[in-house]
Amino acid sequence: MILCAGESLIDMVPADGTFRPLAGGAVYNTAIALGRLGQRTGYLWPISRDPFGDQILRPLAEAGVNTDLCPRTDRLTTLALVTLTNGEARYSFYDEGSAGRMLHADDIGPLPETVTALFAGGISLVPDPCGATIEGLIAQHHDRLPVMIDPNIRPFFITDAGAYRARLARLLPMADIVKLSADDLEWLYPDLSPEDAARAVLQTGPRLVLQTGGEAGAKAIWAGETVHAPAVRTTVADTIGAGDTFNAGVLASLDRQGLLSKDAIAAITPDQIRAALTLGAQAAAVTVSRPGANPPWAHEVPT
């Protein structure tokens, strides 16, 4: 089971002059996408007992995602006010004292033996106590479990850039796979080209650094020659959840190829990497073709 640990929230999405509440969050979207793609998936994040908490739980259940590790709380659900500019999403967060923000280490029980990999990232890595809790979870288990991290950096959400850079400097070396957009790489290494920045991340310890670039497709920076996969052409409704779905496609492909172990990732081949990037791109193309974070089901992507 791939365990996705990180934020869920309600996206308030523009709709005919008002806002429509939709369940979202980077790590939540990845968990939903993995479940819809047919992979055994678990989710770990506090879920509020407010009505929005129930709205968050329904898609997880429909996708077959295990939520046994999710603590329930009376704290309120995080809200993200979404604005769209030429299809690109921008967010304003209402998060202080929220259900997820207040995640502590003692809220997390022992991980079951069925967990075979960890995925984490998003804004859940930024504030404390939740950021420290996710960091601690990864530190506790990365020696045994393969870890994928997508920091999905939102500069406007980061109040202490130095502290967050220090956290990423501790976290990224513990990951086997790191996914970064061109914007993420520019924030991390503003003086380097995207590929040089990705190689700088690779040198800290990950086996694979995946770089996404929208219409430019995706590439994997690793010990061998760079592997490319083109973007899938489609009519874009918006980009909400695109990167999150890409992550799910990559993990689903690795899982199907029997590569979700530390030894297997260490011995991965270019063709195996390309297959993972391709499924990621195919899944993301479905998500961007329809409004909101609405990842594909298994029958909607090539097998």
Rank of each mutant, 00 (worst) to 15 (best):
I32N: 10
A33M: 09
A33C: 08
L34S: 06
L34A: 02
G35A: 05
G35N: 01
G35K: 00
R36K: 15
R36Q: 14
R36T: 04
L37Y: 11
L37H: 10
Q39H: 09
Q39L: 13
Q39M: 12
T41E: 00
T41V: 06
Y43Q: 05
Y43P: 02
L44G: 00
L44C: 10
L44Y: 04
I47L: 15
S48F: 04
S48D: 02
R49Y: 03
D50L: 11
P51K: 09
F52S: 10
G53L: 01
D54G: 14
Q55T: 13
I56Y: 04
L57K: 11
R58S: 09
P59A: 07
P59L: 07
L60Q: 01
A61T: 14
A61G: 03
E62D: 15
E62N: 10
G64S: 09
V65Q: 03
V65P: 02
N66W: 03
T67S: 05
D68H: 07
L69T: 12
C70M: 09
C70I: 01
P71K: 10
P71R: 07
R72H: 14
R72K: 12
T73P: 00
T73C: 05
D74H: 08
D74E: 14
R75Y: 10
L76R: 13
L76I: 04
A80T: 06
L84G: 05
T85W: 01
N86R: 13
E88Q: 13
E88S: 03
R90A: 13
R90N: 14
Y94D: 05
Y94R: 02
D95G: 04
E96G: 03
G97Y: 03
A99P: 01
A99Y: 00
A99S: 11
G100Q: 04
R101K: 10
L103Q: 06
H104P: 00
D106T: 14
D106E: 15
G109T: 11
P110R: 11
L111M: 10
P112L: 11
E113P: 06
V115S: 05
T116C: 05
A117P: 00
A117L: 12
